[in-house]
Design a binder for these strands. Sequence first.
DNA 1: AGCCAGGGTCTAA
DNA 2: TTAGACCATGGC
Length: 207
Amino acid sequence: MMTAAGIYDQLLRSYGTPRWWSDDPYTVIFEAVLVQNTAWSNVEATSKAIGSRMKAEVILSMETGELENLIRPCGFFKAKARTIKSVTAWYLKIINESGNLSTEDIRNEILGIKGIGEETADVILVYALRRPSFILDAYTRRFLERMGIEAGNDGERRAFLTETLPHEAETYGHFHWLILEHGKAHCRKRPECKGCPFTTVCKKASA
DNA sequence: AGCCAGGGTCTAA
DNA sequence: TTAGACCATGGC
């Protein structure tokens, strides 16, 4: 009987305790928008280019055109610039009062921001605000599918993933990052990954 | 050269 | 409520 807790332990043993997305909450928020349907390498390069300007106040006062140019390599730059502006304003507003709000309340607030859907909202909750809200992204769905976990929808996936794990942001954040680590370790066109059941790349390789 | 990348919105049926 | 079009760039 495979449980989420069992999978989590196995990932921990394989890869060790993963690093946190970023210790800086605003960096998490900014990058969470940038990474939408975009390769992580593009996000890294963009963050590097932004450098010390990665601060809510700086980004909020920046010309939209300048922000668009900075994030251009991540694609969808007009939409993402608008979203970043919105979520930045929201973050500055709630940063001092979030302690009074429930995780669900915060989640609903974030989801009200145009350009932020469930995945991005959960990333912000877990890695920036340190609230427990399991992140269901493309990697995680693929991972579960290849593991043979049957789930008809995200609700069932979420139930499976959370019922045997402590409902803590730290656990959710580590789990999510471990799944990404696993993907990177096994699925970058490595011959030894032939037959690896976890990603699209490997599935093609073993077909 | 085409497909994919850690999505989200909008519209039509 | 769901499928499909669309947004855009970079890497392979």
